[in-house]
Amino acid sequence: MSVKNILIVGVGGQGTLLASKIMGRVYLEQGYDVKVSEIHGMSQRGGSVVTYVRYGDKVWSPVIEKGEADIVISFEELESARWLPYLKPDGVLISSTQRLDPSPVIMGKAEYPENILGKISALGIKVIPLPADRLAAEAGNIKSANIVLLGAAARRQDIPKDVWIEAIRASVPPKTLETNLRAFELGYAE
C-alpha cells in the first residue's frame, strides 16, 4: 500500500502525543511500516505543536511536507489555518472548533480571526468541524478531546473499530479508560 500521511496539530498540552501514539500502535498492529514524529521541548510550552504519522508498506521519511497529508487532525481552529498547506488539496481536515488565543491576541495586538473553517471550506477543502471539547466534557472529561478527534479520524479509515478500541485500552491509564472509550464513540459517531 502506498504511504498514508496523517498530521496531528494543536497547542502544546492538548494531548496530541497520546493520539499519535494510539494511531501508531493501530497501524503497526495491522502489519504496516510506521513512523511517528514528535516535537518535544521548548515549543511544547503553549506553542503550536505538530505530530506526523505515516504508514504503508515502507515508510522512509518521518515527516510530512506541504501538500502531502491525506488527513489533518486539528485540535484548534487557528492551528487548522496554520497547517492547512500540509493537506493534499483532496485531503480531509478534521478540526475541533475549539479556539485558544495565541499570545498576540492575549496581549490585544491582534484579533482572533473569524470563520476560519468556513474560509477553508470555501477553498474547496473537505472540512469536518467537531465540537471536540463539548463532546469530551459529555464523555466525562474535557481533556479527552484528543480521543474524540481520534474517533472521528478512525471512522474515515479502513480499519475495524475494535482494533482502535483495543489500542486505546492498551495506551491510556486504566482509571481514564471508560471516559476515553465514551469519547472515542462520540467522535466516531461524527
Binding site: 498540552g13 515549543s43 503553549g46 506553542g47 501538500g67 487557528l78 492551528e79 496554520r82 493537506l87 498576540p104
Partner: peptide
C-alpha cells in the same frame, strides 16, 4: 518539483511558546 497545496490568504497568526 513541489506538490500542490491550498492556503488561506492571510495565513495564520503566530503562536510563540509562552510560560504556562
Amino acid at each position: 518539483i513541489e506538490p500542490p497545496y491550498r492556503e488561506l490568504e492571510d495565513g495564520a497568526l503566530p503562536r510563540p511558546p509562552m510560560l504556562c
